[in-house]
């Protein structure tokens, strides 16, 4: 079906906080694409990403990244293989400067990361201006830019983003999504979860719909945007 899958999740079950949050999902992410996972709050999207990142242990199932199973690996080993997560709520380090936040994004790199730093500053000139400011003093939109820039500093092959548009003004959201496409043009695969299904489906090459721990639909972004169930449940379109 695909040229090459960078990530394959097979029959993944995850219990988190005493409840079964993910109930046997299987999905695949093709290299070089933008794939989105939409669904309402509590559907298990965040838990899925956290499990891929190694923050949560699954009950069973496989997470194959470039053919290698990530289950049982620690987060730093997973980051070292080229998988980063931009967490929900940005979670920049407020006590570190903008530059230190970017530097810590490259924590595991032994090579010279100055070119990536220059690239991040090119993508987000605002961060360059505020290089020496503590990240806690940035606005919400700037913190989101920093969280994305920080994830890019690891030189990832796959970037996972958890609700990057949450709590941001519509204009800023547009900016963030155009950055997501720009990152993708540079050859980085993106796995995006969003409650803002409209923007996500417009941007994504392939999309999944998740509901109470299971995947209920999949298709191209356009197909799902036209789907009646998706329209009424996630796009707020009344029949």
């Amino acid at each position: 079906m695909s040229m090459e899958d960078i990530l394959q999740i097979r029959d993944l079950y995850v219990s988190y906080g005493g409840i079964e949050a993910v109930k046997g999902i299987s999905l695949h992410v093709e290299r070089g694409k933008i794939v989105t996972l939409i669904g309402s709050n509590g559907a298990g999207k965040s838990t899925t990403l956290k499990t891929v990142a190694g923050l949560v242990r699954p009950k069973s199932g496989q997470i194959l990244f470039e053919g290698e199973d990530l289950v049982g690996r620690s987060t730093d080993q997973i980051v070292a293989r080229g998988v980063t997560l931009v967490p929900e709520g940005r979670r920049v380090f407020p006590n570190l400067t903008v530059k230190e936040n970017l530097r810590i994004g490259a924590y595991l790199r032994k090579d010279d990361y100055s070119r990536d730093l220059a690239w991040v500053y090119e993508l987000f000139p605002r961060l360059k201006e505020r290089e020496w400011q503590p990240a806690g003093t940035l606005s919400g939109g700037e913190q989101q830019m920093l969280a994305v820039g920080r994830a890019l500093m690891a030189k990832p092959k796959l970037v996972m983003m958890d609700e990057p548009s949450l709590g941001l003004a519509p204009l800023i959201v547009k900016g963030i999504f155009s950055i997501i496409r720009e990152i993708n043009r540079q050859g980085i695969t993106v796995l995006l979860i969003e409650q803002n299904a409209n923007m996500a489906l417009k941007t994504a090459d392939w999309a999944y719909v998740m509901q109470t721990g299971s995947l209920i639909l999949e298709g191209t972004g356009q197909e799902l945007a036209d789907d009646e169930t998706v329209k009424s449940a996630y796009l707020g379109v009344k029949k």
Binding site: A53, L55, S74, T75, D76, V79, A80, T84, L85, P87, R91, F93, P94, N95, L96, E100, R103, I104, G105, Y107, L108, R150, A154
Partner: peptide, 23 residues
Amino acid sequence: TRIGIGMRAASRDFETAQLMGVK
């Protein structure tokens, strides 16, 4: 230093520090 910045990051947020690769 690298470990020092890792320390300051971890003192605020374990989980996100881990996502950066901090052990």
